[in-house]
């Protein structure tokens, strides 16, 4: 609360200072995500070894100076595969979240603003989809669209759209009862303008939180689908199919499971921290209050 009205300058309120260190969650989250993006970016262009090259002489080698994170059962370099996998996984997650957020926001805005029967019918469909577990819905959709990179994006995107639509619709419903929406109408603004100018920006806070946590879920879901053998088909590496492939060797080569698992967990942590920081940054009420 910035209610320092007792400060010398009468009714003036403390202005947010510009030279301020970012919050700790922004620093930690930003660093983690920075590393991830760097790895993914590099991984798409260059890796220490060819992630697909087999070398049976070196199979299941422990981490060493030559292979920093060891090799898998076919002698492929784990670090190279992790980097290449990061590119695939991040790309899939970003596209999926974008798809779900855009589609869900459009549906939610429309539904919440129209209300009445339009809202009821749309939400009945939405709730029916929401009733399926996301992963089950994605599995079914994958069977239709085919198990490849873009199939996963479409399937997971559709699976996650209903929850976005729900959140946006709820926010819209509560916002449109606020007086500033009535004020916008009295001003003469069209309904479409009111939606874009006044309702949409106020949906951003819940959307950022949802999108960041969803990014994590999508990463997990993509890994799970790959783990089940329905994701990106081998031999192309993803974190999920690396994790899946490590299972038979958990006793002899523990690094095969640990590194992809660690990559997934750290990415989730980074995304969540960064999401919180971004939400605080975008909300004028949170600025200058620390």
């Amino acid at each position: 609360m910035s209610s320092d009205s007792t400060m010398g300058t009468g009714a003036s309120v403390k202005k947010p200072s510009r030279t301020k260190l970012p919050a700790p969650n922004a620093i930690v989250g930003g660093t983690l995500i920075g590393i991830l993006l760097l790895a993914a970016g590099t991984g798409a262009l260059w890796t220490p070894y060819d992630p697909l090259k087999l070398s049976f002489r070196e199979k299941l080698a422990a981490p060493s100076a030559l292979h920093w994170l060891g090799t898998d059962e076919f002698g492929r370099d784990v670090l190279s595969r992790l980097m290449a996998g990061a590119a695939t996984s991040v790309w899939i997650s970003i596209l999926t979240v974008t798809l779900a957020v855009v589609a869900g926001t459009l549906i939610g805005l429309f539904s919440g603003y129209m209300r009445g029967w339009t809202d009821r019918i749309i939400m009945a469909f939405n709730d029916a989809l929401l009733a399926f577990p996301g992963i089950l819905l994605a599995l079914g959709l994958l069977a239709v669209v085919g198990a490849n990179k873009y199939g996963i994006i479409v399937a997971l995107g559709i699976a996650y759209t209903p929850s976005v639509a729900r959140v946006v619709r709820g926010t819209v419903l509560s916002l449109r009862e606020r007086e500033f929406i009535a004020a916008s109408r009295v001003m003469g603004n069209s309904e479409a303008f009111t939606m874009v100018r006044h309702i949409l920006p106020n949906c951003i806070a819940p959307l950022t939180v949802l999108a960041t946590s969803m990014f994590g879920y999508v990463l997990l879901a993509e890994s799970a689908l790959s783990f089940l053998g329905l994701g990106v088909p081998p031999p192309a590496p993803t974190w999920g199919n690396m994790l899946a492939g490590s299972r038979p060797y958990i006793g002899q080569a523990v690094w095969l499971g640990i590194f992809p698992g660690l990559a997934i967990s750290l990415t989730l942590l980074g995304i969540n921290l960064l999401g919180d920081a971004v939400r605080d940054r975008l909300d004028p009420r949170m600025r200058g209050s620390r």
Binding site: E179, A182, S184, P201, N202
Partner: peptide, 13 residues
């Protein structure tokens, strides 16, 4: 129009 509640009649963003 001027509304009753100054806390909800101004867009917080």
């Amino acid at each position: 129009m001027v509304f009753q509640d100054p806390y909800s009649s101004l867009d917080p963003r």
